[in-house]
Design a protein around this nucleic acid. Sequence first.
RNA 1: GCGAAAGUGGCGGAAUUGGUAUACGCGCUGGCUUUAGGUGCCAGUGGGGAAACCCGUGAGAGUUCGAGUCUCUCCUUUCGCACCA
Length: 834
Amino acid sequence: MSKIYQPAEAEARAQQYWEDRNSFRAKEDAGREKFYCLSMFPYPSGRLHMGHVRNYTIGDVIARYQRMKGKNVLQPMGWDAFGLPAENAAIQNQVPPAKWTYENIRYMRDQLKRLGFGYDWDRELATCHPEYYRWEQWLFTRLFKKGLVYKKVAPVNWCPKDCTVLANEQVVDGRCWRCDTVVERKEIPQWFMKITAYADELLDALDGLTGWPEQVRTMQRNWIGRSKGVEVHFGLGNSEQPLRVFTTRPDTIMGVTYVAVAPEHPLAEQAAQKNPGLSAFIQECQRMATSEAAMELLEKKGMDTGLKAIHPVSGAEVPVYVANFVLMAYGEGAVMAVPAHDQRDWEFAHKYGLPITQVVAPADGAPVNLSEGAFTGKGVCVESGPFTGMDFDQAFDAIAVYLEQDNKGCKRMNYRLRDWGVSRQRYWGTPIPIINCPNCGAIPVPDEDLPVVLPEKVALDGVGSPLQRMPEFHETRCPSCDGPAERETDTFDTFMESSWYYARYAGGNSDRSMVETGAQYWLPVDQYVGGIEHAILHLLYARFYHRLLRDEGLVECDEPFTNLLTQGMVLKDGSKMSKSKGNTVDPQQLIDQYGADTVRLFTMFASPPKQSLEWSAEGVSGAHRFLKRLWNLSNRPEYGFPELIDCESRRRFLGSFDWRHLNDDMRKVRSEIHGLLKQASYDVDRYQFNTVVAAGMKMVNVLSQLPSQESLNDENSGAVATLVESMDILVRVLSPIVPHICHELWPAVAIGIEEAIIDTTWPEPDATALVQDVIELVVQVNGKMRAKVSVAAGSNNEAIELAARQDPNVQRHIADKEVKKVIVVPDKLVNIVV
RNA sequence: GCGAAAGUGGCGGAAUUGGUAUACGCGCUGGCUUUAGGUGCCAGUGGGGAAACCCGUGAGAGUUCGAGUCUCUCCUUUCGCACCA
């Protein structure tokens, strides 16, 4: 072993060792408890950033720790390889997206290997490989047959100059990011997945996800947005079709004085045909809606359509308004307005001089002043005909029953969640496995013709999708009638690929099925680690997809991820590290300068995983300094005695050593080390790795201060035994965090173990080492610390109290006062109240 | 507006069930080592005070023998959702 810490060499040796022995290859073993540890796979953007390093270090520390606890660990890695940046790079650099992506993967894979993450590379996958996405296409055709996918016309952002569809993030202030042309809304047919069919299950199961942060569960609950209410039908005179609205407050129905519809509502568009003023207003609303920034400040405006709606209970006529705050995408795109009991309706009514009719009064009889604002609380119905006197629940049911009998409405749930639009008018993605036949309609590609392979040799110019210019791709024959037909040239949303990769890892890269049966051993994922930015979309889609796989008989459990850890952001100078802010730090430079262990140690020590991490160059060099101290510590003669140099001698020496023969000094050292081990074990279990590192640093501090033993004899055998045992513990405790240096130091410090540290266990504190003969107690007078006293372990309260009272400083504070009470907390403190 | 989390030295952060506030590290100060150095080691480092001691975890109150921790009110910051009918 070198005298000087040389991380580059040590790390290469450790990594070579793991690779030669396939240390991280995971095999199903029904006799062993499994642990599936997964970090969110990266988009191969080019180079790892600090966020990746932090994410993957957290995952790796957990995986290595679980392995030391005896679990059979699976930790895979792969590439979320489809996506827009590859197309952008292709346009800028004239490189096909596939080539760009594969080059990035190669570079980033090397970076991950240099960081020493314990991945089972045999299970590596890239979502752009046909062997992967073919199963996504296969599942889609199954779902098509089940009716869980459907096609409908939906709006997209369209750039008329580039003739291309833009993603939301490519629309900047309503203009195309490339050519600055004003973006239009265009309605085109797109595929949707019926996630709403699983809305109730996805919502209800959140209660059982106790291993997830409450914040994420709340965000998903809000996103699904289930609300219980009543659908109410307002008659429209001459029309057969009533105007439908959804309300969560049917108890206020008798206070409806107008109804309001969204600008995109068919009724609004119909009325606008005969009303140029209304038409202009609707166009204005739609223009405003595209510039998202203005949304929140938007003035609430409306316009009377001139139409009248008939109240389903009273039969009264109420005006129909178009209002810019009514959302077409929520509920029925129309609302019944009750100005007396809804603040927004109240303001609108004031602005347009509409009547305000109170129909609910506070249950306690408190007065209501409707000239100042709406009364929005729940109470008792008043002036409400047959419903007068009812409370909210009674009125809710009675009105629902009344409407149902009259066929003018019904109770129902409403959801904020929409079905998942999965069509993307882009090239670099999974081709949608559908053939459009003029005679037969949309026909799924038959199993034997899968996968529909995406051509990789293409040139992109940013105008439209190259697939549309490739007849050899899109010209085909109908699988049903064999007539000429057109293949879909749209591709899937890339969230499709990331919704099931965890299951694919578990089943291996099988060409026989989407998820091989071996996956049942590994699933669900025991620990998922990733960024909070995926709290809703990715994690909700994955939960949905998992249920699709379950209902297809491919997986057995209901949820994909048992425990979720969302790591904090990496900050520099108080704000998030990002390319756009130009405050990034390239981890590769740090690895080159200090080695992987220093980078891993810094990211683990600077803050606990869930909190944000403040970048600090000094912190990195501090981490490196610690590793050098650790290295130097194992260069002390104790670990290189001729008598101890091989494991067998070490085992004999330690095995025959009787810890009861330690002198007081060494007994204290050993007690400290085992106390720190206990602390570290507690903290590593709760994933608070910064204090695990702190415990390791304290161990180094304790051991560094001990005098070196230049030879072994009867007098110093206790000191040597303590040092050797302590070093064994220290290296094990640090090994999940800084595995390379620990691998290298292990042969020098291990007690009688021939195997490498990767195959050893987490140490257990020796209970007898923690027992103290003399206990130091804090003595307080009136809750303020005044002294410390030492008493023999097991002293009774009287003895402790006596010792405390005898302390001179304590006596000064209680001298002329009456002692009212004495509280003794065993092994901790005495509080004398005067 | 709604929801969530968080406010502790110069900085990152610790304090497990209420029980020595500021562990560990960074930075800073002084010293040592024939130290070329940006290396290494040792000591000190919340504020006030000569000291005894007093003050101190965003502000204020409360519970308690004892509160960073529990309760209430308020302030600030960050994040998420946001015209949701």
